[in-house]
Amino acid sequence: MAGLKNGVDMAKEIRMTDIAAELGVSTVTVSKALSGKQGVSKRLRDRILEKAAELGYELDQKKAAADFLHAGLLVANRSFMDPQSCYWNIYQQLAQAASQEQVGLLLEVVSPDAQAQAHLPMLLSAAKPDGLILLGDFGKKYRRMLSESSGLPMVWLDSYGDSDAAACILPNNIYGASEATGCLLDKGYRQIGFVGSILVSERIRSRYLGYVNALVKKNLPVRPEWVLEDHDADGRPLEPEEFALPEELPDAFFVYDSLIAHRFATRLRMEGFRVPEDIGISCYNDGWNPDGFPCYVPDIQKMAAGAMIMLRGRIRDGKARVGKLVIPGELVQ
C-alpha cells in the first residue's frame, strides 16, 4: 500500500521487497515462492517462507500480493495517433479488465523510432513487470528483440506474435471479413472492391483474405485495380481527398475498418456519388461506424478479458502452450 498514508501502519508493514532485499533475491522470486508458483527451487522457497515468517509478513497480505500481477502493455504510437482508432477502444477495455483481474497494467507507447531501432522498452527497467501484453503490429525486428531480450511471458493481442507457439488473442479477421463481404453479395452486388493497404499490417492482410474468400466462394474474380490503398508509402493513413480511385469503379466496397470506411465514403460523396445508393459499403467495425454501414463487430471486451486470463496463465506456467485464441464477433446489418 505504498501510495497510502492512512489506514496502514507504514512502519510495521513488511513487503515482499523487504524479504527479497534480506535474502538478496528478486521480488518476483519472493512472489512466486509465497504463492507456490513454479520457477523457484524447493530450498530457496523454504528459505523465503522462513524469512517471511521471521519478519512477520502477514498471510492475507501475502495472498493479496501474490494474486496481484504487474503487467506491461506496449502499443505502437501510430496505432494511437487517431482519436477514433480501434486501439483506444481495446486499451480502455484492457484497463477495465486489468482492474477486475487484479492486474496493474502500465502502458508504454512505443515511438516509431524505438520501433525501427528495436529499443528495449522503458517498462522493463523501470517497472519490472511480471509479463507483457503487446497490442497491434510492431514489425518483425521489434518482435524478435522483445522475445529475445525481455525473457518475460507475453501475450499478443491482435497480431500473430513472434513464433508459432506465441500466445495470441485475435478477432475473427478472416471469417468476419468474409461475412461482411458476403453481406454485400447477398444484396446482389457482384463487382466488389477492397479498401486497405495489405502490406501495412497482418490485420489488414487477414481481412483482405476474408474478402477474397467470399468472392472465390461465389466464383467471382478478384480485380487488382479494385484493391485500393488506405495508407501512403510512409504508413500514414490517407485523408479522404488522398484516396486514389480507379477509372472504373465497382458497385460496392468492403473496407477493412469502419473508420476508414467513413473516410472512404466521404471521398466518394465528394466525387458526387451517393453512398450506399450508388456505391454500397460494408466493413469490419472496430468501434466507430457513424454511417451505420453493415459490419462485422469483434467482441473487444472478451478479447481484453481473454488477454488478462491468458497472461496470468503464462506467468503461472511459462511453458504452457496456450496457442491462439480467436474470439468470434457478430454481423450487424
Binding site: G72, N77, F80, Y91, S99, L106, E108, V109, M122
Partner: peptide, 16 residues
C-alpha cells in the same frame, strides 16, 4: 494525456 505522457517518457496506468 496518454499520448503526452508517452512523449515525455512516462508510463501510464489508466484507471476507469
Amino acid at each position: 494525456v496518454v499520448l503526452e505522457a508517452a512523449g515525455q517518457e512516462c508510463l501510464t496506468m489508466l484507471e476507469i
